[in-house]
Design a protein around this nucleic acid. Structure first.
Lengths: 181, 181
DNA sequence: AGAATCATGTAAGTTGTTACATGATTCA
DNA sequence: TGAATCATGTAACAACTTACATGATTCT
């Protein structure tokens, strides 16, 4: 239901192919949305049937042909209606690592520490990647115009989320050490 | 697939009813897991069929009868196997508010500010609730024994997540104000 | 009087995932 | 030579949500 608004939102900036849209979920949108390529293609087909998007086939040399999707006025209207709904559903999170943490009582302290150290390394790498992405795209001053404000604000969220995750891991490791004695 | 590990994890601490388990998702687990009561009951039935849990019917006066579920040795073994898997899937997040933020270019600055202010209030209330919950359950010193370490570590995550969300909202509001001129 | 809490469940529908399917080009 | 990237799609299955269904008690 909401996947379509994720796609429509990206299409308000410029036309994208299905492949592009999915790539964005895997890179920029990881902190607040996720999807698989098959779902993206299916949803784009539905939206084309409902005339929320149109596409144009781009013939390329060297890489396969692609379909460049553009949002229609009807699609824009629908997106804005959704953005203005009073009810904002709370976030739905499925974090398998934190689920493991919540069951740490079932394993030993050493096993728990080993798991945490793996995730600390992973989150450090993510923080690094997000910081670099933001620096490359927006530098110190933020986006040059309002068109990219959304992307800038959410990239900052991603950076803060990763930083919080890293610091929490470090705190959790210290806390676990103190339970060893 | 993973909902069962969420349930099994809680059952390693003590027996719970389906209602209890679902309540926990709505309160303590909101930062890393979510589910509906219907899914909880369905999964408990499946796990009973697979002998991962057993239950006992508790007859109550004043409130309806309930089924108290207990984890079996087979269930514990299955949980630990899952916790020790090398691959830890990245978190899957569906945050409709941040999805709206990512499309802020489609609405006016005033509308964007109004949305952010609503969420700031919501997140402040959540931070407050999480802080109080942690204080009431663990005070200043943390859990008295290793049995509650998981719950303590994840409640701290929840607190830090809410704090980060509040601070990000405040930063985003300032940033938006600066784009008005 | 109406809403919230406790308590469990089924049925129908929607959403999302995994596997299957293809194939050229580029990088290591 | 094998993996990664670009590029799109379908089919089958699993996961998840919403609506329906009931009903006593307690709080406002």
């Amino acid at each position: 239901m909401a996947i379509r608004y994720a796609l429509l939102g990206l299409l308000t900036k410029e036309p994208h192919s299905g492949y592009d849209l999915h790539s964005t979920f895997k890179t920029q949108h990881i902190y607040f949305w996720n999807s698989t390529h098959s779902q993206v293609y299916q949803e784009l087909n539905k939206m084309r049937d409902e005339e929320l998007v149109t596409f144009e086939t781009i013939v390329q040399e060297g890489s396969p042909n692609k379909k460049l999707y553009t949002i229609t006025p009807k699609g824009e209207k629908r997106l804005i209606e959704w953005m203005m709904e009073e009810a904002i559903k709370p976030a739905k999170i499925k974090d398998e690592f934190l689920l493991r943490v919540s069951a740490f009582q079932a394993i030993t302290i050493d096993e728990a520490i080993a798991l945490l150290e793996r995730i600390l390394a992973r989150e450090k790498a993510i923080l690094d990647g997000t910081s670099k992405w933001q620096q490359e795209h927006y530098g110190e001053d933020g986006p040059p115009n309002y068109l990219h404000i959304g992307s800038y604000l959410t990239s900052e969220f991603g950076k803060r989320y990763a930083k919080m995750y890293v610091e929490w891991c470090q705190w959790a490791l210290e806390t676990l050490e103190s339970y060893r004695t």
